[in-house]
Design a protein around this nucleic acid. Sequence first.
DNA 1: GTTATTGCAAACAATTTGCACCCAC
DNA 2: GTGGGTGCAAATTGTTTGCAATAAC
Lengths: 134, 134
Amino acid sequence: MSPRITRSQESILQLLKQIDRPISAQDLYVELRNRDRTIGLATVYRGLEALKLRGLVQSRTVNGESLYSLVHSDTHYLTCLGCGTSIPLEDCPVRELEATLHQSLPFKIYYHTLEFFGMCLPCQLQLDSPTVRE
Amino acid sequence: MSPRITRSQESILQLLKQIDRPISAQDLYVELRNRDRTIGLATVYRGLEALKLRGLVQSRTVNGESLYSLVHSDTHYLTCLGCGTSIPLEDCPVRELEATLHQSLPFKIYYHTLEFFGMCLPCQLQLDSPTVRE
DNA sequence: GTTATTGCAAACAATTTGCACCCAC
DNA sequence: GTGGGTGCAAATTGTTTGCAATAAC
């Protein structure tokens, strides 16, 4: 495995930084295409994977789709199981624990994810009413 | 959506409780088959989805595969990005924040996930240490 | 020049869906 | 009886892989 960060990977990083929100590989691909380069979808996936292995990029899965973002942006989310809406959270109570782990285990920790799941009010109401049809 | 928990869903819950570790839908399917019932894979997926919407079951994604577990077991993990090994963690520093959120937002919180990602020692060595920052 | 990276298309695998049948109420 | 739940197989979709062409050093 190579220590090199390729040009494609750099444009991926750059774009992730620019848009600054979790984005799917496919959308990333479209965006990159819209800009300058002819890049392949496979290259996007391979680049993202390589960047993850470096601890530069992280992903979380929503509805069977991976959303990628820079590790630097350590925002966490509150996600509705009904509609999938995600609300970003400010606070992060985990840093200390992370530091502790870092010392007590032979593990190099790159980042952590913290996500709350539940039901937003609209979805709560919709689930209660049996009148949902299409 | 119906308030009923079906028989299939009950056997799913029961099995999740028995094995008490995150398991994929496919493995769950095989296990259920091995036991008693002729259950379909689609039913397993549909059941798991329904149970998620109730806040009874949660899932996390590893290597493009969803692993399901009871919400009750709020263990968190330290996962190696290289080999995918997951180490369960005891401590959970998040409960208080969860309680706070519960009150300040119109959101019914079912559970949270907390996961640390990094590189275990073997994987660190295998990736002939490149120009890593710090 | 040698080796790693890329794009494309085909392959793959996990998950979802259409539909006829069946069961619970 | 009726409406939702189920099994099966086909369809879908996000992701990975084989391979020849290309770019990096």
